[in-house]
Each structure stands twice: as C-alpha cells, then as structure tokens.
Computed example of a mutant assay.
Amino acid sequence: MRWTAILYGSVGAAAVVAGLLIPWLVHSRGSAGAPGWQGLVNPGALSEAHRFLAGECEACHVPHEGVEAKRCLTCHTATSFADKPSTRFHAQATACATCHVEHLGRSQPTQMNHAALLEAGAWLQAQKPHAGASLAALDCASCHASKDAHQGLMGSGCVQCHGTESWRISTFQHPPAASTQCSECHRPPPSHTMMHFSMVSQRVAGKKARVDQCFACHVTDDWNTIRSVGRYDHH
C-alpha cells in the first residue's frame, strides 16, 4: 500500500511539475523550449498552404492567447484583397481565424462563416448591418457578383431564393423542356455575339435560329448538349 501511494504521489507530482514547467518554457523560449510537447497538443495537420509552418506554433499563436490576426499579416500583408469583389471585404477584417480554420488537414483552410459578417468584433465595416441583424441583411451581390449565374437578370436580392449553407434551391423547378422563353433567364455566351455564332454554332446545330431562340439548339438538362447532335463543348 505504501509503495502504491508513493507511486501515485510521484506521478501526480510529475504531472504538476510538467503542467507548470512546460507552459513556462514555451512562454519564455517559444515552441522549441520544451522538445516533444507539440505532439501532445497538436490538434491536427495544417492545410497544404500553411504546411511549411508545421512545428512553428508561435508563427500564428500567441502563448496562452491563441491565434493573433496581425501574425497572419506577416505573410499576407502584401496580398491585394481589393483585386476581386469576393475578397474585397477582407481589407477590414480584424479576426482571420473566424473563417480560416487550421489543423483540419484540408487542402484549403477556408470555412466560410457568413454569420461572422454581422459581428462588429470581427469586421469593422462602414456600412455594417445593425446589431442583431439577420443574414438577410447581407449584401450578397457585393461579394458574389462575379459568380452570378443569373448575369444580373434576377437583381441583387439573393436571399429571396438562396441560403448561406447551400447555394442550391431544393424547391426550384426548371421550366419544361418545351418552353421557348429561355432568353428570359439565360444570356448567350460571348461566342454567340460574334461571327462565331453563324460560322460555327449554327452550322454545328444545323439550325438558322436567332441567338435568342435557345430552345432551337439547346436542351435543358445539359447546356452543351445540342439537339440531334449530342454533347458539343465548344464555348
């Protein structure tokens, strides 16, 4: 019984010493201050883009505090977020880790959290939705305009049909294949607005239809499948 008590006491004492010594060494000397400890606390592999930082915890983390946004800027300070509408809002971000989550072993660390766009603590936007606003208050088109499959035909009220969890609309039903009003929703690709349309597209389809008579050459289940011809990916 005595030896068991001594054993348990020794293990407990060692755990207490390690619990105090390791944080002190890491805080004062960095992640290399206590060799081998990282293997005990590492939550998972970094993304491919950040894999070169493996083992260098303080490159992103502040001891006892967590990820610090300004450390992200050490590498990303030269990134021009204003080049694309979909990344322009990053210029006012104050908490990178809200959407960029590491240690999941994925190819990309991005895990978009639309709700974070309503948090004043993460975003300092001049025209931020008022406190307590719902996701419906977000201006979806300000980021997604370049990927608007509707090409502006449906306006900017994306939230009327789309959600933030999935872009698909479960209740959407495409008009029947016999419909002849395709041009109300679909605009022609650039190839249809130049001589390519008469020299190639019309000849391949074997039709003399106008560019707004989509139904004469196309089917509704695959835009690149031409009636009586089959799949022809030439746009």
Rank of each mutant, 00 (worst) to 15 (best):
V211Y: 05
G36P: 01
F52R: 10
S31T: 08
H114N: 11
T220V: 12
A131P: 04
G12Q: 07
Q108S: 15
P176V: 09
Q202W: 00
E68F: 02
L118V: 01
H144K: 04
M194A: 11
T225D: 07
P188M: 09
H76E: 01
H174K: 13
Q181C: 08
C96K: 01
A209K: 01
A15I: 15
E68S: 11
H235G: 09
R203Q: 15
I226E: 03
M154L: 15
E119L: 07
S166D: 14
C57F: 04
H234W: 11
V204H: 04
C60D: 02
P188D: 03
A34H: 07
A137S: 15
P43V: 07
I6H: 05
H103I: 01
E184A: 13
G44D: 08
T164D: 09
A122H: 06
R29A: 02
A18S: 11
A5V: 13
R51M: 07
E184I: 05
Q173L: 12
H218N: 10
V17N: 00
L104I: 02
K128L: 15
A133P: 03
C60H: 01
S166Q: 13
A59F: 09
H61L: 05
G12T: 00
L104E: 15
H218M: 05
A115E: 00
L21D: 03
G19A: 06
E65C: 04
V204K: 08
G230R: 12
T164W: 14
G44P: 03
D222M: 10
G55S: 05
